[in-house]
Amino acid sequence: MAKEKDEFKTKFSKELGPLIALIALLIFTAVLNPRFLTLFNLQSLGRQIAIFGILAVGETFVIISGGGAIDLSAGSVVALSGVTVAWLMKHQVPVWLSILLILLFSAGIGMWHGFAVTKMRVPAFIVTLGTLTIARGMAAVITKGWPIVGLPKSFLTIGQGDWLGVPIAVWIFGICVLILHFVLRKTVYGKHLRAIGGNEVAARFSGVNVDRVRFVAFTTCSVLSGLVGIIVASRLSQGQPGVGSSYELYAIASSVIGGTSLAGGEGTVIGAMIGASIISLLWNALVMLNVSTYWHNVVIGIVIVVAVTLDVLRKRLAKQ
Results as ranks from 00 to 15, higher is better:
E4N: 13
E4C: 00
K5F: 13
K5E: 14
D6W: 11
E7V: 03
E7T: 06
F8V: 12
K9C: 02
K11Q: 12
F12P: 00
F12N: 00
K14L: 12
E15K: 03
E15W: 03
L16D: 09
L16N: 09
G17P: 00
I20T: 04
I20P: 01
A21N: 00
A24I: 13
L26P: 01
I27T: 05
I27K: 00
V31H: 05
L32G: 10
L32A: 13
N33S: 11
L37S: 13
L37E: 12
T38K: 15
T38V: 11
T38C: 11
L39I: 15
F40R: 15
N41P: 04
N41T: 13
N41C: 05
L42E: 12
L42S: 10
Q43A: 10
Q43D: 09
Q43F: 07
S44M: 13
S44H: 14
L45S: 09
L45P: 09
G46E: 12
R47S: 12
R47T: 14
Q48T: 14
I49Y: 07
A50V: 07
I51V: 15
F52E: 06
G53A: 13
I54L: 12
I54H: 12
L55T: 11
L55K: 08
L55G: 08
L55Q: 06
A56R: 08
A56S: 15
V57Q: 10
V57F: 14
G58F: 07
E59K: 06
T60S: 13
T60V: 10
V62P: 11
I64W: 01
I64E: 02
S65F: 06
G67A: 07
G68P: 05
I70L: 14
I70A: 02
D71N: 15
L72C: 08
S73V: 04
A74M: 14
A74E: 10
A74D: 12
G75H: 01
S76I: 02
S76T: 04
S76H: 03
V77Y: 02
V77H: 01
V78D: 03
V78G: 00
L80C: 05
S81M: 01
S81W: 02
G82Y: 02
G82N: 04
V83I: 11
V83E: 08
T84A: 03
V85L: 04
V85D: 01
V85H: 02
A86C: 01
W87S: 14
M89E: 00
K90Q: 14
H91W: 03
H91Q: 07
H91E: 08
Q92D: 15
Q92E: 14
Q92H: 15
P94N: 06
V95M: 10
W96P: 00
L97G: 02
S98F: 05
I99R: 02
I99Y: 06
L100N: 07
L100F: 15
L103K: 09
L103P: 06
L103N: 09
S106N: 09
G110H: 14
G110V: 12
W112Q: 00
W112S: 05
G114N: 08
F115A: 11
A116L: 11
A116K: 04
V117A: 02
T118F: 07
K119Y: 13
K119R: 15
M120K: 15
R121Q: 13
P123E: 00
